[in-house]
Computed example of a mutant assay.
Amino acid sequence: MARKKSSTDAGVTGAAPAPKKKRWYHNLVEAYRMTRQVKPAIGWMMLGAAVGVMVLAIAIGLWVGHPIYLGLFGLTVAVLVAMSILAFHARRAGYAQIEGRPGAVGAVLGQIKRGWDIEQEPVAINPRTQDLVYRLVGRPGIVLISEGPPHRVQRMLKDEERKVSRVAPNVTVHRLQCGREEGQIPLPRLENRLRKLPRVLTNAEVTQVAKRLRALGAARMPIPKGVDPMRARPDRKGMRGR
């Protein structure tokens, strides 16, 4: 007969227990809790929207003579509406939690799925103040987005605009400042602001401009993925020309 494995035998192998896989409802609960910290009324908003959809669906069902069918359909729509409200406010709550931290703009840009060619790392950084400038290319043209106080980032934005204008002289360049001071764009509204920029390039032109700028970005100080911008330091050997 085969000997049963004891707890001692299991410990000898040294195999760590596999982490438990999170179910979808665990993620849902975590998103709700995070959102509730920023927007305490989120539960009532979801409930109100769901009840409103249900009442409307049942009313239409009574009017057309199919209350059960329309009620079931309304229940499905009510759940979808409630989840959409949660998803919208959960994203804004997430932005509110990271706002003001170095790299927050990069986190927002990482949520944009299509329509833009985005440099995942900052194209300019001030190691002393941790002010950053990000660059992306889309149909509105070239967009430079800064993190930091206006009196410090204006110079960085102008320097970057001069650099990209030498490579793409006929392309529109937008300079946006992300922050809470006057004239800046709050982090939760940044993505919406990008959508409102007028489109002036075709998709083919976007690809061509992005290739030119990618070569320009490779020539400047690199910031490897995963490196904390707070700890970034200039390459002193490179500065001495070695």
Rank of each mutant, 00 (worst) to 15 (best):
K4P: 03
I85F: 05
G14K: 09
Q97I: 15
G217M: 14
L47V: 08
M54E: 06
R139H: 00
L157R: 03
R189D: 05
R23K: 15
R139Q: 07
H89C: 05
L176M: 07
A107W: 00
G52T: 06
V137Q: 00
G179A: 07
K196I: 09
A104R: 01
D235M: 14
A168S: 13
L47E: 00
A232L: 15
P67Q: 04
L201A: 04
E121H: 15
N27C: 12
M54I: 07
Q154I: 13
M239F: 02
H151S: 10
N170S: 13
I125S: 00
I60G: 05
V143E: 01
D159M: 14
R162I: 08
Q177D: 11
Y134I: 12
T207H: 11
A10E: 14
L62R: 08
K113H: 13
K39P: 01
R128D: 03
E182P: 00
S6Y: 06
A219Q: 14
Q208H: 10
D131N: 11
E99F: 02
Q120F: 07
P222F: 02
V200Y: 03
M156W: 02
A204C: 12
R101Q: 10
V227L: 14
P17N: 11
V53W: 01
L187P: 00
K39E: 07
I42Y: 02
A16H: 13
W44P: 02
D228M: 09
R33H: 10
P198E: 02
L47W: 01
R152S: 07
V51P: 03
L75E: 14
P40Q: 00
V51M: 11
D131W: 01
P224M: 14
E121I: 14
Y25T: 15
P186R: 15
E191Y: 03
Q177H: 09
N126Y: 03
V200S: 07
I98G: 02
K237D: 08
G74D: 03
I85H: 06
V12T: 07
V133E: 00
Q120E: 15
V77W: 05
Y95F: 13
K158D: 08
N27M: 14
H89G: 06
W24I: 15
D9H: 05
V173Q: 04
K113C: 09
A31F: 03
S84G: 14
A10I: 13
M54Q: 07
R242T: 08
M83C: 14
S146I: 06
L136D: 01
L132H: 01
N192E: 12
V200A: 06
V206A: 04
K237G: 04
A2G: 05
V171K: 06
R199N: 05
Y25N: 13
G43E: 05
L187G: 01
